[in-house]
C-alpha cells in the first residue's frame, strides 16, 4: 500500500467534491433572495466512476450543474429545506470519507512505527 494509491486518490477526490458541494449549498442559501438565481449542485461521483473505470484517476473532475426545478416568480429556484438537508448529507458523507482516509493512514502508520 502506497501513500498515494488509487484508493487514497479516490478518497481525496471525494473530499474535494464534497467540499465543492458544501460551498455550493452555502452559496445557494446566500442567494436565496437573488432574483433570477438558479440553485447549483456539484457532482463528483459520476466523473470519478468514469475515471476509475478508465484507470486514469487524475482525470476525475467536479461537474457543476444548474437546478432544473421550477422557479418562483422572481426567477429564483433555491429551496431552503433542500439546501439545509443537503448540508447535513454532505457533512455525513465527509465524515464517512474522512473515517475511511483515517483508517488507511492508521494502517500505514503501524507499518512505519516498527
Amino acid at each position: 500500500m502506497f501513500i498515494s494509491d488509487v484508493t487514497n486518490q479516490a478518497l481525496a477526490h471525494a473530499l474535494r467534491g464534497l467540499d465543492a458541494q458544501r460551498q455550493l449549498h452555502e452559496q445557494n442559501i446566500a442567494n436565496i433572495e437573488t432574483p433570477g438565481y438558479l440553485a447549483q449542485k456539484a457532482d463528483f461521483a459520476g466523473s470519478l466512476r468514469r475515471a476509475l473505470k478508465s484507470g486514469r484517476i487524475d482525470e476525475a473532475g467536479i461537474d457543476v450543474t444548474n437546478s432544473v426545478l421550477p422557479t418562483r416568480l422572481d426567477g429564483n429556484n433555491v429551496r431552503l429545506d433542500d439546501e439545509i438537508t443537503g448540508l447535513t448529507r454532505t457533512q455525513l458523507h465527509q465524515d464517512l470519507v474522512t473515517t475511511a482516509l483515517n483508517s488507511r493512514y492508521r494502517l500505514l502508520r503501524t507499518s512505519w512505527d516498527r
Binding site: 429545506d81 433542500d82 438537508t85 447535513t88 448529507r89 455525513l92 458523507h93 464517512l96
Partner: peptide
C-alpha cells in the same frame, strides 16, 4: 448512500 435521509426529504 444515506437512504433514510432521502426518504424523509421526499416527505418534507
Amino acid at each position: 448512500l444515506f437512504r433514510s435521509l432521502s426518504i424523509a426529504e421526499s416527505g418534507m
